[in-house]
């Protein structure tokens, strides 16, 4: 089920931990892909999920119905099924992007991964933002309208700034879920951290536990760091005297 490209694995005889160490560069390269996948997917999720949340709260009957239905399907289907779907049903060609002499190749699997993880995340993020928008007191909207602001300006300048602050805990949770779920792109053979770990331990079967513990430690550091970083963001934008953001 995984990709077929053979990893450049160091195969010298050594202790199992030494084997992990020798191949740490290979695993760190996978970690970079894990991070890239996470960032791209969370961003896609935000740019689709935030408007979707706004539509769910302020949209008309038809647009709301559409967004809600798509959301139910995406939230009700396992991520692995979504990823396989993206990979086989909407096959994206490999892309090579060149900007200022730096070229980056994006494999079809990477794009499928970002689309799958990103759209699924959008479905969850829309729920986070919907809840946050609805939690802003109706009086805020009325007060904004009472000084003559139109509905869009009221949403933008009064409701959204408050809602975004309240979204931080949910968003934090969502980022770590996406981060952990990047491991599921194993199903479409994208060589991120867990896939690379797998490729390593099928070569050196005595080191399975060592490799997996090493990879798990990297994941743990990533989720832990993400959480602390977002805690800082939350504290930075908290409203003085008010609820913590």
């Amino acid at each position: 089920m995984t990709g077929v490209e053979l990893p450049p694995i160091a195969l010298q005889q050594a202790s199992d931990w030494a084997f992990v160490w020798e191949n740490s560069g290979y695993l760190f390269a996978g970690t970079a892909l894990t991070i890239a996948l996470t960032v791209a997917s969370v961003l896609l999720g935000f740019f689709v999920g935030f408007p979707a949340g706004v539509v769910e709260v302020y949209g008309g009957r038809a647009s709301r119905g559409l967004v809600e239905t798509v959301g139910v399907v995406l939230r009700g289907t396992p991520i692995v099924v979504i990823l396989i779907f993206m990979y086989f049903v909407f096959p994206t060609p490999d892309l090579t992007i060149g900007v200022l002499g730096v070229t980056a190749s994006l494999s079809g699997a990477f794009l499928a991964g970002v689309l799958g993880l990103g759209l699924r995340s959008a479905a969850y993020q829309s729920q986070i933002f919907r809840g946050a928008l609805q939690s802003v007191d109706e009086g805020q909207m009325e007060a904004a309208r009472s000084i003559g602001m139109d509905k869009l300006a009221s949403i933008r300048h009064v409701v959204v700034p408050q809602a975004l602050r309240r979204s931080v805990p949910g968003f934090q949770n969502e980022v770590t879920i996406v981060l952990k779920d990047t491991s599921v792109v194993f199903a479409i053979g994208l060589a991120e951290l867990l896939t690379r770990s797998y490729d390593l331990f099928v070569v050196r079967t005595t080191a399975v536990l060592e490799i997996l513990l090493f990879a798990s430690a990297i994941y743990f550091v990533l989720t832990f760091t993400t959480n602390r970083a977002l805690d800082l963001v939350s504290a930075r934008y908290a409203i003085p005297g008010g609820e913590s953001a």
């Binding site: 007191d137 009086g139 805020q140 009325e142 007060a143 009472s146 000084i147 003559g148 602001m149 009064v158």
Partner: peptide, 28 residues
């Protein structure tokens, strides 16, 4: 919106914009 510009309203439960300072509330 033009009408409401000309008619000020003060609410029972204030409805101050929670994310803005006093000055920010008046400036908006």
């Amino acid at each position: 919106n033009e009408l409401r510009r000309q008619v000020g309203m003060v609410f029972q439960d204030f409805n101050l914009f929670a994310h803005l300072t006093a000055r920010g509330n008046v400036m908006l």
